[in-house]
Design a binder for these strands. Structure first.
Lengths: 354, 354
DNA sequence: GTGAAAGCGCTAACAC
DNA sequence: GTGTTAGCGCTTTCAC
């Protein structure tokens, strides 16, 4: 039943890798370093030898060991990406796109999520650094002091994404959430709504949403219009939107800006349930332009952050510093001194809801 | 301007790590192996020495190198998780939860997404294997032959999740999608709907949705009721739901089962727009019990897969095989021969929509 | 263009 | 409980 040495029963701990580069080299009758060269810069190896090596690799089913490679090369081919939550569509979108882009250059993506905790983030950064990653990507620009110190001391490229404003540790890619908040406020003002509210959830954790709220409220205040802030204690969800609209019962505003589309969806449903006409009685705006935003009844006015562009730019920053990133990897050293904040902007998407 | 040796300008390629375990050992006046032991099994080191080592680590700001550790230990502390897409709420949920659970045991999560391509999956598995991971987690049980071969040859634990049915490569955690499809069909039958349709998107790629469709259609057929399949060519989205409802115009069914809640949301909106009453004229059911499902108008009848339970069980399978997983890691070798398919089931969530 | 030699930083026997 | 001794599998000068 328990056969002598099935691959799945670990007999002896050490040396789990059966076929190494040396085996390949032997079979191909070349030296290990030639095999290594073939694997990394195939162009530098003569065609005759390339063929032999390739044949040997296929025959043996050789799988390279990146761990050993990373150690010898003093730097691994992983990029650590740390986001607040993957449940949030913005971040899952960004991670997806980033993973795709980086994979094209042989870089693997290590993800971690902080649940919006800075201490958790610090722990993840520590763990990330232990992998000698090719780069570290963080979300936002608010971190513990220890995190900043740790990161500034390292030679690893660091990219902070989805937020602009603070001085970046190294590079930053994102946009101004305050401006996004103001943008929605201006829309309401232009449309003649004379009172408004910002509906958010856990603003103490989601600092970017808090900035949008701030921008929104400031713009309203500057226009001399009343605006208040309602906050749900649970993480942002459709249910939060439902609750917050109900909470506004006592002093209904004419227009509500939601911290994101998911919340706005809840507001829309609850309004429908209560017979509140949108945008007639209540204007609603969201943030994110999620999948469903164009399909709601009425279609949702929102803001589309350039998620793909953020991912693309982040990948660009990383690849620009990657020694193995192919021909276009020009200014490896120079780019360290290049402008360090990249604004990807956002698009205002006016629809019928407000 | 370009100062002598700022940490961020890579002077010499090799040896990027400044402070090693040897440095810590020296400062603490112990041997490197003691430091190593302290880091891995603090309990095995005397308190006096522990204190000294800890002080040295803090003073130097030592960051361990997992790459070197992984090489020496012939196995790294990463788990590779490969999903079709992180945009899909099911998988981002699972990855989130898995990452959280594994992080508690010092395991890092390496993600990859296949975009529903088996060839892409094979490439990711190859890359994953190169990290000598502590485990590999795959989605579904349909893989290329090469993937299966690669995986069966390795000693690395492999867990296939979110689907049951085929013989697992190693371990499987999930549920029967066919049963889920049948479950919705039975609901429609019980409620007296005499015709139905299954609305899906890219069923050739999303094999699990295809299984739900099959189960649904079979159950209807067995009840002698007409049912057809409508498929959208784009990836599943709210817009697909809108399109598919429109496509049903010529021969409207009395009830529609959607391949997931996102699609159902689109159906709900489009029905509202067209003045089709739900569930009066049309019954609608989804799959997933996503965030918004309980809030729609009317609330959405759906199926809740035990996403958290899947993640928990997958983590369990992995940790059971992890030599470092602490005290409860009993049956490390035995569990390899334990039952290999784990059914997490699902919950039918009847609401007002159908 | 190819090979020989010297580690990368750490872990795991094993002896003490 | 702590130190000594060998590597893990690969990359990278540097000769040839």
């Amino acid at each position: 039943m328990d056969s002598a040495d099935s691959p799945r029963s670990p007999r002896k701990r050490r040396k789990m890798q059966s076929i190494t580069m040396t085996d390949v080299a032997q079979l191909a009758a070349v030296s290990p370093s030639t095999v290594s060269l073939y694997l990394r810069k195939p162009a530098a190896v003569s065609e005759r030898i390339s063929l032999r090596v390739k044949a040997a690799i296929d025959e043996l089913g050789y799988v390279p060991n990146y761990v050993a490679g990373g150690l010898a090369a003093a730097g691994s081919r992983v990029v650590s990406v740390i986001v607040p939550s993957l449940r949030n569509a913005f971040f899952s979108e960004t991670v997806t796109e980033l993973e795709r882009l980086l994979a094209q250059h042989g870089l693997q993506t290590l993800v971690g999520h902080t649940e919006y905790s800075r201490e958790q983030e610090e722990a993840l950064v520590r763990a990330a650094l232990s992998w000698a990653p090719a780069a570290i990507v963080l979300t936002g620009c608010t971190h513990t002091q220890a995190t900043r110190d740790l990161l500034r001391k390292t030679a690893t490229p660091v990219v902070e994404m989805w937020e602009l404003g603070c001085t970046p540790i190294d590079q930053a890619v994102g946009f101004s959430h305050e401006a996004a908040g103001r943008c929605i406020a201006r829309r309401f003002i232009e449309q003649g709504y004379d009172s408004a509210a910002f509906l958010g959830a856990r603003l103490g954790e989601d600092l970017r949403a808090a900035q949008r709220a701030q921008g929104f409220l400031d713009e309203m205040a500057e226009a001399g219009l009343p605006a208040r802030l309602l906050e749900d204690a649970q993480p942002a969800s459709t249910a939060s939107g439902v609750r917050l609209l109900a909470a506004m019962d006592d002093a209904p505003a004419r227009a509500v800006a939601c911290s994101n589309d998911t919340l706005a969806l809840g507001v829309l449903f609850e309004a429908q349930r209560r017979g509140i006409s949108v945008p007639g009685t209540l204007a609603v705006a969201g943030f994110g332009d999620l999948d469903f935003a164009a399909q709601t009844v009425p279609p949702l006015t929102t803001i589309r952050p350039a998620a793909d562009q953020i991912a693309a730019k982040v990948a660009g920053c990383i690849l620009a510093r990657d020694p193995l990133a192919g021909p276009g990897s020009a200014a490896e050293a120079d780019s360290a001194d290049a402008p360090r904040s990249h604004d990807t902007g956002f698009t205002f998407v006016p629809r019928a809801s407000g």
